[in-house]
């Protein structure tokens, strides 16, 4: 057996960034209704890095939309104790007519932050993602990895920048590295960890890559598909070498099991 724990250590309510309690979400009505999430309980601590793992149809995107406040649950509760959650998508989705710096500034502009402060904040965040020199470039002049870093800076601006009182942030990431090549993905994973440590933002990271989940997360939560339910979670904080490999093996095996149940259905 590996060093993984089935249940993470309990945390006091004060240190919770997001809590989902018995969340259901279905789309449509009557017999044609589709249940995306069924009784999901999930908690992300302040500054915690949690990876949501699941195959297609596990309602990952639905869950992120609920936490982001872009959608509301059919029943159950979603409570956040952080600043506005920021969302990062698989595509960088930068606005092509704005420079990198203006893209980072946009959420601050929407939050009515005065110009001087948002300029300063944007350049600080570009510095953080090591893109200080390309602030006046447009998205089409940047590589895919650079665009995704600008998107990360913009997401950080969205969750951290609008408030001055150091309200804790929350970053929701929907397979943000899935469209990148392997080398860039590897570098960006390391970058994300560095930035996560530097900012102390809580991260809820959706992926279908077990290795990525184990490498990045402190906790990995496995969701079943159609409808999405929490199957199990593992604490994978600080696992290295053989332990990390064993955790990947174990989670992979469980994931395959979950997927297999759909073969007969």
């Amino acid at each position: 057996m590996t060093a993984t724990l089935e249940i993470a250590p309990p945390q006091s309510p004060a240190s919770v960034a997001v809590r989902l309690t018995d969340v259901h979400k279905s789309y449509g009505h009557g017999p044609r209704a589709v249940t995306a999430l069924e009784g999901v309980d999930l908690r992300v601590g302040l500054g915690e890095f949690v990876c949501l793992l699941g195959a297609s149809g596990c309602g990952k995107t639905t869950l992120l939309n609920l936490v982001a406040g872009l959608d509301s649950p059919s029943s159950g509760q979603v409570v956040t104790h952080t600043a506005r959650p920021a969302v990062m998508f698989q595509e960088a989705a930068l606005l092509p007519w704005l420079t990198a710096a203006r893209n980072v500034e946009l959420p601050l502009r929407l939050a009515r932050v005065p110009r001087d402060r948002r300029r300063a904040k944007a350049s600080e965040l570009l510095e953080l993602v090591r893109l200080a020199e390309v602030g006046d470039k447009r998205p089409h002049e940047l590589s895919g990895g650079m665009r995704q870093r600008v998107a990360l800076a913009r997401a950080l601006a969205s969750t951290l920048g609008a408030t001055d009182d150091g309200e804790p942030g929350l970053l929701l990431m929907d397979e943000p590295f899935a469209a990148l090549d392997a080398i860039t993905r590897d570098v960006l994973q390391a970058e994300l960890l560095r930035i996560w440590r530097a900012t102390g933002t809580a991260v809820l990271f959706v992926t279908h890559d077990v290795r990525e989940a184990v490498r990045l997360g402190q906790r990995v939560v496995l969701l079943s598909s159609r409808p999405g339910r929490v199957v199990r979670e593992w604490s994978v904080d600080g696992l290295r070498g053989a332990d990390e490999l064993a955790a990947v093996e174990e989670i992979n095996a469980r994931l395959r099991e979950v997927i297999s149940t759909h073969a007969s259905a």
Partner: peptide, 25 residues
């Protein structure tokens, strides 16, 4: 705190700069 020694590659910034130089259109 070097919590993840294997991943706190001191050359990360350099690797990244190289990648940017190669990949940028």
């Amino acid at each position: 705190e070097p919590a993840l020694p294997g991943q706190r590659d001191p050359g990360l910034a350099t690797v990244e700069a190289g990648l940017d130089a190669l990949d940028a259109p």
